[in-house]
Design a protein around this nucleic acid. Sequence first.
DNA 1: ATGAAAGCGCTAACAC
DNA 2: GTGTTAGCGCTTTCAT
Lengths: 355, 355
Amino acid sequence: MERRATIKDVAEAAGVGVATVSRVLSGGSASPRTRERVLAVAAQLDYRPSALGRNLRQRRTGGMGLLVPDLTDTFYGQLAEGVLACARSAGEPVVLGSTGGDPEQEAELIGMLLEQSVDRLIAVPSGDAETWTPAFRAGMTVVFADHLPAQALPEDDPAASAANDLMLLDGLSPAAAPPSRSLDVPAVVADDRGGIRTAVRYLRGLGHKRIAFLGGPGQERRVAAFRAAVGPPVDEELVVFGTGSRDSAYAAASGLFQSRPDLTAVVAGGNVLGEAAVLAARELDLRVPRDVSLVMYDDVPWAELCAPPLTVIAQPGRDMGYRAAELVLRAGTRRPRSVVLPTELIVRGSCGPRR
Amino acid sequence: MERRATIKDVAEAAGVGVATVSRVLSGGSASPRTRERVLAVAAQLDYRPSALGRNLRQRRTGGMGLLVPDLTDTFYGQLAEGVLACARSAGEPVVLGSTGGDPEQEAELIGMLLEQSVDRLIAVPSGDAETWTPAFRAGMTVVFADHLPAQALPEDDPAASAANDLMLLDGLSPAAAPPSRSLDVPAVVADDRGGIRTAVRYLRGLGHKRIAFLGGPGQERRVAAFRAAVGPPVDEELVVFGTGSRDSAYAAASGLFQSRPDLTAVVAGGNVLGEAAVLAARELDLRVPRDVSLVMYDDVPWAELCAPPLTVIAQPGRDMGYRAAELVLRAGTRRPRSVVLPTELIVRGSCGPRR
DNA sequence: ATGAAAGCGCTAACAC
DNA sequence: GTGTTAGCGCTTTCAT
């Protein structure tokens, strides 16, 4: 294989200057005659402009970065597929990173992207506002997906973060919200509030009183929505969290079922948590839905394979990714605005009347 | 945010030449005194070398490309996680593309990577040898994962490809294999032959005679292994294929069950096919394992959630990705050799004695 | 409409 | 051991 043709080769072969070639290929002005000749020569030499040269000149890499916590979580797989679909149709590259839900790894990956001069980023954030400062300071255009970063508020007020988050995205008075960097950052999220509320009402309608929430990292809005939907008062023992890994999700679910055998329904905040709930229930000989009803956030293909098939709150993962990619690519043209996508309660077989 | 510091800034501030800075930062020779000063200044200015400049100079992008058919397929998610883990520990970026199993999209993505001067690539190939010619001609280092590209043999001999593939990777005499470009390309694959053989023997041991294979694209080696394990003679009606989408997998599974109600067991060549088999069986009121036994290739978290839990042939997706990334990064140092990773039959509840 | 020329930030000769 | 310099391939003034 021999050296790839450069713009200089094309210019020489076409008997024009390099600037002309550049103009023709990027749709600038040129006489029809010249244009035609350049195009012909370029095709003949199988010329492909090198992104390297262009990027250096423009001091930025095209395309976008994508940061997700874990690609074996089907929801993030769907999200990534959406991003990739949009990027592909735009011919843009996507640099991918998996953070494992760890703010430190996230920070490192942000550093790597900065080094690559990737200045557009779609992220399902794991770290808090502080983790994201370097990205903003460097002038990155970032669009968050699924949820916003935690606000890194004083430790004595863990609930404020969620409440704040909720207000912002539910469109309450901005004046009521404290000023925050996150306010400026667009995000593509699902209507968590609506989804959770619908699920809780559905369970209530079946007679359930003691409903638990099994949450994971980054689900502040969902928890807040759950609290709002069931309470007050909220039975705090019925709100438990895993750290993101399958093991910790299982531990949380198992602990919940054992410490509160009186609960009759649980809402899992994501598919990994739902999986854990099914496993833990089976291990403890709890029958779904006879002994315990289950609603899971995320519709994933295997929800239908479960026995019984799982009732879920579906969110459009692929669309979310696609929209986020659109936003990040259009940034500069129009100021990105946050997007809230609808959720849908899909009733299958994992919920029954209170026993 | 202000302009990032360049190597020149560091050089000036440290009172040395740019070359010295470059040397210090890339571990070249420098006096301890100088080294220390440069490092201090660099840290002070928060200097990060721009990959753009380095890449252009070296006429290649660092890192690697990764091409998979579909990220919502959990197996590819696992594979990608492995690749990302290795890349992260090397501090290298990964440019991701999803082909949808379509050779044309694959070709386009290869073109995009070429344009980016990405010269290392890990791919679960969808196209045949011809699709891959441009990558090889451009001098890309490619490592295939999961399987090799189809050989694009004469149309009258569809089986030869599989047979050929099989020979190569099972380590049979290279002299017996036709010369082929693919021979030179390293790959990281699972021991399909062993996995399938074990599964078939297991089913045979349960008394099953009419065992079907439900395959997908790129599973030539698995089909070949299946044929070898059950036959001859092979009941060709019991070997059916989907095209890769969930819909087509379902159609194939459903068609199989309806056209051959006498079959008593099926081996699904991948998790999407397994999912389809479970769904189709349920739709047709076939009970697993009473009416039909099922073994699925791929261990995925939801296999355990199924009712009954699925007996699977586990392959180490994450390891495969990690190993592939290692190979592609070490290329140049040592000549990459193909790797075959072991599979394991995990017996759960989806197989029973022949009814 | 077109060409000449100046870099973008970096590394690798090459000279000292 | 260290500085100087010449580009890598491209876009973009600035003349013409």
